[in-house]
Design a protein around this nucleic acid. Sequence first.
DNA 1: TTGTAGGCGTTATCAA
DNA 2: TTGATAACGCCTACAA
Lengths: 340, 340
Amino acid sequence: MKKKLTLKQIAKELDVSVSTVSKALRDSVEISEDTRQKIKAFAKLYNYKPNNIALSLKNKKTKTIGVIIPEIVHHFFTTVISGIEQVANKRGYNVIICMSNNSFDKEVINMEMLANGSTDGFILSVAKETQQRGDYHHLLEVINQGMPLVMFDRVIDEIECDKVIIDDTIGAREAVQHLIDIKCKNIALITTVDYVSVGKLRTQGYHEALVHNNMKINDDLILKVEDFDHSEEEIRKFLSGKDIDGVFAVNEHFAIYAIKAFHENGLRVPQDVSVVGFTNGELSKQFIPSLTTVSQHGAEMGAQAARLLIKKLENDEGEEEPYETIIVETSLIERNSTKR
Amino acid sequence: MKKKLTLKQIAKELDVSVSTVSKALRDSVEISEDTRQKIKAFAKLYNYKPNNIALSLKNKKTKTIGVIIPEIVHHFFTTVISGIEQVANKRGYNVIICMSNNSFDKEVINMEMLANGSTDGFILSVAKETQQRGDYHHLLEVINQGMPLVMFDRVIDEIECDKVIIDDTIGAREAVQHLIDIKCKNIALITTVDYVSVGKLRTQGYHEALVHNNMKINDDLILKVEDFDHSEEEIRKFLSGKDIDGVFAVNEHFAIYAIKAFHENGLRVPQDVSVVGFTNGELSKQFIPSLTTVSQHGAEMGAQAARLLIKKLENDEGEEEPYETIIVETSLIERNSTKR
DNA sequence: TTGTAGGCGTTATCAA
DNA sequence: TTGATAACGCCTACAA
């Protein structure tokens, strides 16, 4: 077992000084062609690689990006990570991923852990609990220390930083408009409780679409699911006995539970009821009927977030740039859960 | 914007030496109660946190684990990561995740990047391309440098290291046995090409189950999918016109494509054909009919891998321990794609 | 052309 | 009880 080679060892081996080795390896003109070759050959032979940690300490840069997401077992976040990885790796950055599991405490702990030198900046989608509590001290602290922070998807308006979002409201509006276009009259909304920012925005899009088409909003047709773990139950109860010909659900699971509930009641999708979901996951593609859905282009969001962050990181010396908010367009993907 | 506080700054501020500060903060008895309190109060007030990078350099430990997986957009790997995160975080380790995207080159680059000081050890599921090429120099090198490596799921027999696997063969055998138990006579296998280790093993399980029940193996009933991206096509063609009453597919996608193909041919699942998949993903749960499948217990695998790795890391000083291979049991989850 | 010295932030050892 | 020094691995300004 040969331990990692260091400059010092090379220097001793070749009987030169450490700085000579360092310079030679960086192709400094200060060093004679001769020794330079000798040193480089030796380094190559023994596969010398500089130690990242030492470099980080010296440069005060770690070249890594910290990503904190609420949950990974969720196709959307998975695609976002792919997007981040892509551009980060291309630009020479590592990616550290931590999960908050939607817990405020875990989010804080993870951020503090990473903020102590492990990363140069953060990409974050805020935990549900954090949104609920409205306690953002950890975010402010990180920003205050001069670490760039990019928020995506679940963002916090009050915090000033770069953001990558989709226009949830417009996405939802288009989804509902689609239902209206195919002649749905009684359109139900299955959404989350309001403190989840995206749920709230999508709910708003639903409202806007109805108002825009002079349809009245019937609160009986709106379900705000309290508990994700029992959403299937809640949805089944909500739907039973209601006269509905269209459903807009704010995620794919809700959409599928709705379809299942309809099936149980002898209703056919899309012949009797049309259903639109949100998030273009594997489920939406493979379910029968496949789901018409609002695609959030997660990889694109991740890529944009990474670009934004790296831009801030590499601009560090320069002038203060204003914060940006990038809105990634959604697109409605029509499949078989809605009539034509 | 206040930059991060360092020992040096505290020392200057309080007019003591750096080492006094260091000791005080670590509650050394060397320091008088008085100054200790003073220093700790100050540190707390300004929220001092030691710099991880400096600690890493000093201790030659990063307290982070590098995880390299072929693809994250895959429910199984996602659950494994959850498992790793859980135990790693609990024991004070960070987790860096990189994706190889099943590319040999990316796997090598990621490993080299992380091996240069960024991580203390690796948890890895090998890229498809790596298995195909049989080039493992990067793995050997890492091991050679004394960095512990734990492989999971897609492992390489020739490499000596800790491993966490499921018994793919037994899992497959049980799946096929289940089909036999419910009186299937013509059982097809939809698997991958042989260089994917898990595909090969599951194929073997299929063989064993048939042999064990004195059924003959009919190569016409075996499909080795070449190209994942066109698997749906391949499967449809393969299945058409064949007299089949049971299918064992080595992943959930293949299983679903099979079901879809049967539907197109007017066959009902499970009444006319029973289908068993592998991997208990979201698709298996939500698809209609829901899939009978072999669950791999990904989170459990991840947790075991992390435990194994941390054990090696923390035993560093001690005696050489032999390598372990942990076999996580699979379990057959019966749902609606197979008759009772 | 090469080497020395200092520093990044921390801790351990030894001296005062 | 406190402080100075060296070290982790690397880089760079400056001296030789």
